[in-house]
């Protein structure tokens, strides 16, 4: 395997250019009691790329994502964000740094409408204080309207105009996944973490989702970290791939390199994929 993970290859699709390393994970180890979820894992993420994390069930993919957005705090290792070591932080602080995410098990606000769910993504960008809000005066109202416009743009982008006012609990699975993505997009993040955004979807829904992900990457230049089980999808849309197995990194490189990596082949054959 070449040193592809450290070189900045010219973008495969759409002439996208990768920037510098935005997030560098160094020797990350995470344990839950006796369970070693991640063992000494290092890899980096470059600006504007689509970086996939793959691996069999229980490999530690979601744990890795949770480390990046501050849900879990690794016992060992460093996270460098734009060249600076990141302090231990909670998810809402990671959000402030421009890291947004979707969830493997959809975690929408079920009681709220699609619009309201996506509106929560604008929370950090709202400036009006509690007092102004409590009195619902001019400034707060204008702010609300401005953010509503942004949310409507996202609704259009994801082609969910027809369900704008529906309570999300009542939506079919595939659409819920889309709303989940919309909420993350509303944050206008620098880094977007997607935990199996296509799980449980049919072919058509998967195609739509792929298109959205590539459009996000092209139009907004968002750095995307993607966990996905569907190999076809991964090979199609990602620029670089990290492979995990039993909490260890067994491969890292372009889709082609990973595909021909013997360890990866063994891991996948061994676990029946």
């Amino acid at each position: 395997m070449t040193n592809a993970s450290n070189a900045a290859p010219a973008a495969a699709q759409g002439g996208r250019k990768f920037g510098d390393v935005i997030l560098d994970l160094q020797n990350i180890s995470l344990r839950f009691g006796g369970v070693k979820a991640l063992t000494d894992i290092s890899f980096n993420i470059r600006e504007h790329e689509v970086r996939a994390i793959i691996g069999p069930n229980g490999a530690g993919k979601s744990s890795m994502l949770n480390v990046i957005n501050g849900v879990y705090h690794p016992q060992e290792g460093k996270i460098m964000f734009r060249g600076q070591e990141r302090k231990k932080m909670e998810p809402h602080m990671a959000a402030k740094q421009g890291i947004a995410r979707t969830f493997q098990n959809i975690a929408l606000f079920k009681g709220m409408s699609v619009l309201d769910n996506i509106m929560t993504g604008r929370n950090l960008r709202m400036k009006c204080n509690l007092f102004q809000q409590a009195l619902w005066i001019g400034a707060a109202r204008n702010e609300e309207i401005a953010h509503r416009e942004k949310v409507e743009e996202i609704v259009d982008f994801l082609e969910i105009q027809h369900i704008r006012k529906t309570a999300v609990g009542a939506l079919p699975y595939g659409l819920q996944k889309r709303v989940d993505l919309g909420r993350a997009l509303a944050m206008e993040p620098e880094i977007l973490l997607l935990d199996e955004p296509m799980a449980g979807m049919n072919v058509e829904e998967k195609q739509d989702m792929c298109r959205f992900i590539l459009d996000i990457s092209d139009q907004f230049g968002t750095t995307i970290v993607l966990i996905e089980h569907d190999m076809g999808v991964v090979m199609d849309i990602s620029d670089r791939v990290v492979v995990l197995d039993y909490g260890k990194k067994i491969g890292d490189g372009t889709p082609d390199e990973v595909r021909n990596n013997q360890d990866v082949i063994n891991a996948y054959l061994g676990s029946g994929h």
Partner: peptide, 19 residues
């Protein structure tokens, strides 16, 4: 809305930056 979000799902609320 932020309060309702927290009421619905702690994890998701935090992920959009609600402390």
């Amino acid at each position: 809305r932020a309060l309702r979000a927290v009421a619905d799902d702690h994890q998701a609320a935090q992920s959009v930056g609600i402390p």
